[in-house]
Design a protein around this nucleic acid. Structure first.
Lengths: 140, 140
DNA sequence: AGAATATTTGCAACTTAGTTGCAAATTAGG
DNA sequence: CCTAATTTGCAACTAAGTTGCAAATATTCT
């Protein structure tokens, strides 16, 4: 019995013509379930009894970023954070909010941000990312 | 004969009531001269014959960030990048542009970004940062 | 200016995130 | 089920940043 999650992960990997491996399936499923960007370590911690080497997870993330299925989120933290690109438009990622009190980060998936011009003083703008700081509902 | 740069750095440190040390003066001067965010290593490389331990530079940057004189820029790169806050408003930093071809980052200091609402679904937004990706004038 | 106090500095050792090379294991495709 | 292409795990490594502590320097007070 294949879960819905399993099917989605399968589709995602196949859509990019990537080898379908247990490791990749698990990483994609962890990202599908997450409601915020995750680090390698957080992903590893959400793999249940399945265990994959951190190198495998890092390499999987790198591959997924290369084919555009995953984005890096910009977060004031030492480690890199990753999330599926399915909530982003071509030209703009949804904004992230980091609470200056509790440190938690949230995705503001449905907040509309006015897109910048495509050209500015000779710069050709392809993608745009926004980050907010302030107090989250729990800390405000 | 004190240079203009020297006076500015002195003012900046005094404005935050920080101990005026040779190391801090040098770091602030390097940032004043820079036209883009710098890493610890880049700052160290711009100190001329003066040499300070990397720990000192890191600690200086941390102190300056804490008092709000310096901001961290969000750049797709392993190392942290810092810049003086003097081109930012209270609620918004100027945007940064990273070229996907040559990798260089530029400050778009005078580009106006519409500020987001101060409140959104219970989130209290204090500061906002924007990052662009695309092709710089040299690579476009 | 000189003494007392508070703060910063440099060093060495350490931590944490992420990467590399390579042989063994797994996947895709006929 | 055989072959070629790709991925995996391991161990060792790099790079960025941090910590503790004694010595050095900055500020303040008289």
């Amino acid at each position: 019995m294949k879960s819905n999650l399993d099917l989605k992960a399968r589709q995602i990997l196949k859509s990019a013509k990537l080898y379908l491996t247990a490791g990749r399936m698990s990483v994609v499923q962890a990202l599908l379930k997450a409601d915020k960007p995750l680090t390698q370590e957080q992903i590893a911690g959400r793999l249940g009894k399945k265990r994959f080497d951190k190198v495998t997870i890092y390499r999987t993330l790198k591959t997924l970023v290369k084919v555009g299925l995953v984005h890096r989120a910009f977060i004031e933290d030492r480690a890199r954070h990753f999330e599926l690109a399915h909530n982003c438009s071509e030209s703009q990622c949804h904004p992230h909010f980091t609470c200056t009190n509790c440190g938690r980060t949230h995705c503001l998936t449905d907040m509309a941000i006015p897109g910048a011009k495509k050209r500015y003083k000779g710069f050709l703008i392809h993608r745009q990312q926004t980050r907010f700081e302030g107090l989250c509902p729990a800390c405000a």
